[in-house]
Design a protein around this nucleic acid. Sequence first.
DNA 1: ACATTTGTACCACTTAAGTGGTAGTTTGTT
DNA 2: AACAAACTACCACTTAAGTGGTACAAATGT
Lengths: 211, 211
Amino acid sequence: MKIANILLVDDHPMLRKGVAQLISLEDNLNVVGEVNSGDEAIMFAINNTPDLILLDLNMKGLSGIETLSALKRANTCAKVVIFSVSDNETDVLQALKFNADGYLLKDSEPEELIEKINHAIAGEFVISEPLTQILAKSLRPQVKTNIMQSLTQRELENLKLIASGKSNKEIARKLGITEATVKVHNKNLFKKLGLKSRVEAAMWAVEHKIS
Amino acid sequence: MKIANILLVDDHPMLRKGVAQLISLEDNLNVVGEVNSGDEAIMFAINNTPDLILLDLNMKGLSGIETLSALKRANTCAKVVIFSVSDNETDVLQALKFNADGYLLKDSEPEELIEKINHAIAGEFVISEPLTQILAKSLRPQVKTNIMQSLTQRELENLKLIASGKSNKEIARKLGITEATVKVHNKNLFKKLGLKSRVEAAMWAVEHKIS
DNA sequence: ACATTTGTACCACTTAAGTGGTAGTTTGTT
DNA sequence: AACAAACTACCACTTAAGTGGTACAAATGT
């Protein structure tokens, strides 16, 4: 069985010790290093090519996200799993944005932690269960706002077509109406939604997950 | 303790029986109905207002997704949790799109199933663990393509600003260059990415999660 | 019956966007 | 030194987009 090398990055020595202890009980996991800052983490990762890095988010100096970003930009093929107390939505989404390979909460059960670490090493994305809701939330359509319901059928159709990159002329052809009418609908929907251009309209559609 | 009423929707009677049996072992859960089609599910939900509906995706007649959509459009405030064998990406994302309150796999462990059902009733979004990867994947930036790296610094900046709804004039002001130059960058980036307009560019940016 | 909303259409006008070309400067590479 | 790539700028031109009106028919609600 291959032994996976793990690097711990956290500025609390006691917590590192605890995690190191826990990990050392597994015979397929090995803590190859413990560092307390992002800079050191990057240095260590380049020289020692660990298989997985457990990275705290809230550190002095380089932030966890900056460190994550740097680690991913570097050639290291180490998996980077965030290990944080924060169940904050922006933290989780930021981590995802910078391609973290997982996000585990510090208050996880030890067995869960070990299990997920193993999964992460195997290449799966892992995340503590309470955080799945954050993922789901950002993928779901927003609740329909009053303002959205104020759009008429035609305006909504126009909006969708704008968001699909169609020109007014194309929209007119598709809906079987004149370009002038398309412009009328645009005008009205821009006004209702407080938008200045079709690009803003397209982005509005994306944000509100209109398809 | 409040007892939650559950409706089972699946066109396999045997499977329904199994699940019903499992659920009936819990004293806070009660199976109020079992139906084998989407139509019946909708009817039942309207008349009997269950607290939670376990909905199969792959059914004869109305598909699971259509049923989900109908249930959500109706005034029923029942939680609808998909209960399927499919760990297919599109199925999961579709379910999310139509505001499913959860997505559980049929090969889940019984205890897990019960636990997640309880969480769903409490208002949490629940999902079987293997599927979290699908959520993560759709939230992460795509791998950087060659074509994306072919963009120069300025072109990329322009693209971002276009995607934020800025006009050429605003982009020019922001970058401290003339509008003519902005147009040059646009022209080049459109050509590189094969786009026809700034709206398409904005949508391209969204798809490739450029921010 | 009357008023409102929605969808349709047209016009005239202004501004924005996109295309084709030329060309100078910097920066980095060979 | 020569070259290529990137960034800059300008011009002329075409097309697209957006604004402000007016207007009328159909449907809807009061």
